Amino acid sequence: MFLVPEREIAGLVTAADCFTAVEKVFASMARKSAYNFPVIREAIGHADALYGFKSGFDRESLALGLKSGGFWPGNADKGLTNHQSTIFLFDADTGRCRAVVGGNLLTALRTAAASAVSIRYLARRDAEVLGMVGAGHQSAFQLRAALDQRDFKKIVGWNIEPRMLGRLDEVARERGIPFEAVELDRLGAESDVIVTITSSFHPILKASQVKAGTHLACMGTDTKGKQEVEADLVAGATVFTDEVAQAVTIGESQHAVAQGLVAEREIVELGRVINGDHPGRTSSEEITLFDGTGVGLQDLAVASAAVDLAIAKGVAIEIDF
C-alpha cells in the first residue's frame, strides 16, 4: 500500500492534471461507465463539525474508493484548514487498499477544475469579464482555474466581508489582470462568467442581476438547505451539473426543483456536452448554469493521478499493510 502525504501534493499535481482528470470522469459518468455511491454527510454533534463520505467506482479507469472528511469550523483557530479530508483508493480486482492520499489540497483543486471544465464547454468564447462571488479559501483556486479558460480582461468580485477580497486581488495581480471590488448589481451587469463559491444558506445573487449570455458556475451548495442564487435564476437558465441526483437533493438546483420551477429531467449532465451528446450553449443570449455539487469520483480521479505521479517521482511511501 502507498501513502501520499498531504505535504507532497503541491509538488505533484497541477491544475492542468486535475482538469484532465475531472473532464475524463465527467465523460465516463455520462457514458454510465462510472457511478457515485450515496453520499453520507452528518453533523456529528461535536466541534460543530460536518463529517461524511463520498465514494464511487469508474469501470473505465478502475478507480475505486472513498473520500472521508468534512468541515471543522474551529480549525482556523488551531492553524489548520477548516476542510479536512483523506482519500482511500482500493484495487478494483482484489479489494485491497492500494493507497491513502492526503485530500485537502486535492479537494480544492478538483473543485476548481470542475467549474473550469464548465467554463471551457459552456461560457461564450468572447467572455471578457469574470465575476467572483465569495472570497474564502477556495476562491483563489476557483479564480486561477477560471482564468485559464478564457482571455479575461477584467475581474470583479463581491464578498459579504469586503476585507477578504484581497485574496482575489492578489491572484489578479499574479496574472496581470485588473481587479475591482463591486456591489452585486454591478457584478451581474458586467460579468460574462460568474463563479459563486460561498457557504450561504440564503440566495445572494438574483435573476434580475444577471445579464443574458452569462455562464454561472455555482460551486458552494453541497448540502441540503444551502443556496447561493435565487431559484428564479436557476429556472431561467439551462442547467448543467456533475450528477443530477445530487443536484436535485443537495445542489443549487434543489430549491428550484422543490418549488416546481425546474424538472429533474431538464438538468443536463456536463459529461454529455464533453462527449458530444448535447450541444451545450445554443445561443449568445442563453444563460447557462453549472450546478457543481462535488462528487466522489472527482476525488478518486485526482487522487489516482497523484498516486501515479508520486510513484513515478519516488515520493510515495510504500508500507506492508
Rank of each mutant, 00 (worst) to 15 (best):
T198W: 15
K206V: 13
W158H: 13
I177W: 00
A114S: 12
G134N: 11
L184V: 15
F152Q: 09
L122W: 07
N159H: 14
D192C: 14
L168D: 09
I119E: 06
A189H: 03
E170K: 10
A146S: 08
G136W: 05
F179D: 02
S139D: 07
L184C: 10
R110W: 01
V100H: 04
D222N: 07
R120G: 01
A99D: 02
V156K: 03
T214F: 02
G136K: 05
T94Y: 10
Q142G: 08
I204N: 10
G95A: 05
L216V: 10
L165I: 06
G188W: 01
I204W: 05
R124W: 08
S118A: 13
V171E: 05
E128D: 04
G103K: 00
L165V: 07
G131M: 03
D192R: 12
L105C: 15
E161V: 14
L187V: 03
F152C: 09
L147V: 09
D222T: 06
M164L: 09
R96E: 15
I197N: 08
G157V: 02
V133N: 08
S139M: 13
G220F: 09
L205H: 05
G131W: 02
W158K: 15
G134K: 07
V117R: 04
H215T: 08
E170P: 09
L147S: 08
A114P: 00
F141S: 08
G176E: 13
G131E: 03
T94P: 02
A145Y: 04
L168I: 05
